[in-house]
Design a protein around this nucleic acid. Structure first.
Lengths: 230, 230
DNA sequence: ACACCTTGTGTCCGCCGGACACACAAGTTA
DNA sequence: TAACTTGTGTGTCCGGCGGACACAAGGTGT
């Protein structure tokens, strides 16, 4: 990258050839470019080379602003999840608040389908991400649940978001591989009678990867516990 | 790899030097070696080179038996999850059956902590994996739930297993990063009052990443729905 | 005896993350 | 004004990755 500057030195205006007035590289610009790549081509396409090309610089230029790819991904995540919401204005107690929280979080993750892929494995965690957790835990303040129960409840809920979202972008699980599963069932239906029957007896509900079903079940389950504490 | 055979040709027994009586390479031996590597060093350490070295062959030899790394991983998964269980002998209806199913699945995933990492993203699915789903869906046969509800319920449950297991192996989520979270709270406690308070008011329960908590909530939530259908 | 087929080897390619030395403009100080 | 420092982008190199492809050398069937 960076074509030879020989001809330019010979023929160009010599005085001010190098480094034209190009936008300065910043962490934010890098993160935005990386997010753009990830939104369009998926997390697998986010390499230092690709992001740098997007900004018309060499990949090593990026390392002046981020220490490693892991750090770049961390910055991408912080930017993509956005500011955590304020749920204190939502009326109706813990359940409507959690529903609002889940909808907002799902919306953010919907805008950036690579978030599940980016947030697996050991990694750095930023303040906004912690802020989202804070927000949900706060919504459970007056439920009579103790601290670890509140944490576990939020973990359960956000895990559900993660699962439905990653299932949405990749036919990752046996039960969500729509077409794939149907093919298997056609060829091996005798081995999976219960799946075959379940496939046939759907009530024609909207296919949302079990998002609303799981959400309702989780909230119902929390309600059972919370009511029992009163 | 494979040192030059010059000296051997000059000094060796010439007739039967090459290809000593070494165990024949098979898909199963390759998968076993790969699983061994993954169990010991994690999924990131599973490369064709590393697995081949484990078997004392070149990496290209593996491609005589598997078409790609994705196929190797698929075979690893099929081998690692094991045969799906027969739950029909478990008494007490759907709930004990699902508890048994979840415990068995969690045990298998516990033996192979790389399973979460290996089963994310687009991938191939084998009969055993589908068999596990079949097994759980079958356990919900007499609940009055329709087909897609049964599928969604199993998705919800197995998603919880995946989440708790991947949280166990990597401090991946803000709420499971134990030490990390504690550090953040020490430095920024004013920004996360609810987390700080939750951290303090735990009832000293066993730390299992919310496994049993989430399992009970999910099953309670399913029970609410199932009871309402009767 | 010979041809074929199977199976493992060696070499090459492009891409990855990243270390490191260098180029060069701008600001600071003498 | 001249010399130095600092900050930012470039070029080159490295080891490791998945994988294509040609080749070697057994075993086997005719």
């Amino acid at each position: 990258m960076g074509e030879s500057r020989g001809a330019e030195l010979l023929w160009g205006s010599r005085g001010k050839t190098a480094r034209p007035q190009r936008l300065a590289l910043t962490v934010d610009r890098i993160a935005d470019a990386a997010i753009e790549v990830a939104d369009a081509e998926g997390m697998a396409a986010v390499s230092m080379q690709h992001v740098a090309a997007q900004l018309e610089v060499t990949k090593m230029a990026l390392y002046r602003h981020v220490a490693s790819k892991a750090e770049l991904v961390a910055v991408m995540i912080e930017s993509a999840v956005g500011e955590p919401p304020d749920l204190t204005t939502v009326p109706g107690g813990w359940r409507p608040r959690l529903v609002r929280w889940a909808d907002l979080m799902r919306a953010a993750w919907d805008r950036h389908p690579w978030l599940p892929a980016a947030t697996t494995g050991e990694r750095l965690t930023g303040p906004r991400e912690v802020g989202w957790t804070e927000s949900a835990v706060a919504a459970l303040a007056d439920t009579g649940l103790d601290g670890s129960e509140r944490m576990d409840a939020v973990f359960l809920l956000s895990g559900h978001i993660r699962n439905t979202q990653s299932a949405a972008t990749a036919g990752t699980q046996p039960w969500t591989a729509e077409k794939h599963l149907r093919d298997i069932l056609r060829d091996h239906s005798h081995r999976f009678p219960a799946l075959l029957e379940a496939e046939g007896s759907t009530n024609g509900s909207a296919r949302d990867n079990g998002w609303s079903f799981g959400l309702e079940r989780i909230l119902d389950g929390l309600a059972v516990l919370i009511d029992s504490r009163r």
